[in-house]
């Protein structure tokens, strides 16, 4: 279980998170929604150890992980597929997947994971010798997901996995995410696609201006007047 408590993160003078608390239970699919600039990416990066925190704590399976370096967080099984995919553009599809399994634990099972990921994404199997930059947007997103799965995540954090994709492709990605969760992967899904995100997640948080303003089961978020007005355009 991931537990974030009263987390404060600042970029120099700008406060990006003002005391955020949230939990992701083992096996859950939790959604984090909010508009551009709300602090969603900041939250994931703080959990991953890419940016320092000012106050508050982050714990994983009961032990404190605040202040760990990103590689150490990854070794604990907390894996982020970052916003904008951030693939290794000039490396092949296969090498990108191998890099996903860089940590010692996943590396010991790299052949097994590779087989599983290529079965999940046959498109990637066809293109395994191509460079990542030569793939289409949808394929790149599959590769980003595949690379994250190669790390055999105990918690998978996805940052805007449908960003920039055609609607059909986005729908397919959300379907895959739902399947992964049903197959047992714990997922924290960050997205601006409020309707699709909340329809596959059981619980959700609304982040506004660095603060959690709403939390609860997805149906409750979907029924909320603010969400309806600001995020669903109803």
């Amino acid at each position: 279980m991931l537990a974030v408590e009263r987390l404060v993160v600042k970029y120099d003078e700008l406060t990006a998170l003002r005391g955020v608390s949230l939990t992701v239970e083992s096996g859950a699919l939790v959604a984090m929604i909010g508009s551009n600039g709300a602090g969603k990416t900041t939250l994931l990066n703080a959990v991953s150890g890419l940016i320092p925190t000012r106050e508050g704590t982050i714990s994983w399976e009961g032990s404190l992980i605040t202040g760990l370096t990103p590689d150490a967080v990854c070794r604990l099984g907390i894996v982020q597929a970052p916003e904008g995919r951030k693939l290794f553009a000039k490396m092949t599809v296969e090498e990108n997947l191998q890099m996903g399994a860089y940590s010692p634990g996943p590396r010991a099972r790299v052949a097994e994971s590779m087989k599983r990921v290529l079965e999940l994404f046959p498109r990637l199997a066809e293109r395994r010798r191509q460079t990542a930059e030569s793939l289409s947007g949808g394929e790149q997103q599959m590769l980003a997901l595949g690379r994250a799965l190669m790390a055999t995540p105990g918690l998978l954090m996805l940052d805007e996995p449908s960003l920039g994709l055609a609607p059909i492709m986005a729908a397919q990605i959300f379907e895959i995410i739902g399947d992964l969760n049903r197959a047992g992967t714990t997922i924290l899904l960050v997205s601006q696609e409020v309707l699709q995100t909340l329809s596959i997640a059981r619980d959700g948080y609304l982040l506004e201006n660095g603060e959690i303003t709403l939390a609860g089961p997805s149906e409750r978020l979907l029924a909320d007047q603010r969400v309806k007005k600001s995020y669903l355009g109803l």
Binding site: L50, V79, K86, L87, F88, M91, Y102, S103
Partner: peptide, 21 residues
């Protein structure tokens, strides 16, 4: 693997770190 990590760190250092480099 180490050599690939060198290339990965170069091309995309944040992502390399996120995957354990």
């Amino acid at each position: 693997y180490t050599g690939k990590a060198v290339r990965a760190a170069w091309q995309q250092s944040d992502a390399a770190q996120l995957y354990g480099v």
